[in-house]
Design a protein around this nucleic acid. Structure first.
Lengths: 153, 153
DNA sequence: TGATGGGTTGATATTTTATAACAATCAGGG
DNA sequence: CCCTGATTGTTATAAAATATCAACCCATCA
């Protein structure tokens, strides 16, 4: 699940390429700004806040304003390239952008690393719970806090 | 699951009494302010924001400052009398304050009503998922958005 | 060609949500 | 009564997000 010491540049690059390709298919616009914001979100393997993205984006140029970042993030979330972690007010790159989905996450309370769980069984259980409570399912957020394998050792 | 047209005053009253009793047992201080804030949280069956509580609390007296409300809410959450809904930045009274637990919620996207799910099976599945991903479980938030039975009709 | 219109980005201001820091007050034990 | 720690009051500020309108880009089409 965790890939240690992977080549992170490669990992970013492939996320950007995937996004590019998906946007071409969907005929949505993967503009330079949106591309850059996605790159910055991926620049950490931890969740990143909108204002951290803003600071990075502003380096070496006139400071950009919050809406610039939020609008780009909205687009990326809409397309499913980025997930928002509600409990942290922060954002992470999606590990499986090809299939639009709600993210379910494990968050390490020591190192802040996030693991996205794309497990159908979990998703099914949640949908079932909704149904049993009389609700028509729309979407869900699941954020589990705990200590990851790495940090326990 | 939904109780329509229940006597809401009664419902508030019993929440307050339960809290009172639990605080006595735990020897924590259920002060007038904390009691009043809990009462206000329960005054809606929908999630209420901190600043809505603040406004209600300020009625007919000198306006209170945000920390007053946030501190009271922190206490109530700590004691398990109130849950925070992350996806709404809002708060709801806990339906089962006797047992400290993490809240799992259904949120109606039409009427904003919230249903707390205290289902052990769901909780177990979530814990299991954490374990399978190599995490030591600490706590979790689950917030399912959908349309409730009432609003579908 | 250049007018038009939708989508995107820029810019300014403001709102909403939450916390830091320190002073005043209160409640209970010695 | 005085001390101590917890609680509440007060002022200021930080952090997160959005509203609004102007400028720009660019594809289309009259």
């Amino acid at each position: 699940m965790l890939k240690h010491k992977h080549n992170h540049d490669e990992c970013i690059e492939s996320a950007l390429e995937a996004a590019q390709k998906i946007c071409e298919e969907r005929e949505t616009r993967f503009t330079p700004l949106r591309r850059r914001v996605l790159e910055l979100v991926w620049s950490k393997h931890q969740p990143i806040t909108a204002y951290e993205v803003l600071d990075l984006l502003s380096e070496g140029q006139k400071r950009v304003a919050p809406p610039t970042v939020y609008r780009a993030l909205d687009f990326l979330i809409e397309e499913g390239f980025v997930h928002r972690i509600e409990s942290l007010n922060a954002f992470v790159g999606c590990s499986d952008p090809a299939h639009k989905h709600q993210g379910h996450f494990m968050i390490c309370t020591k190192c802040s690393n996030v693991t996205e769980m794309n497990e159908k069984s979990l998703h099914d259980v949640i949908k079932k719970a909704a149904k049993e409570n009389g609700y028509t399912y729309e979407n869900s957020i699941l954020e589990i806090a705990g200590v990851c394998e790495n940090c326990r050792n």
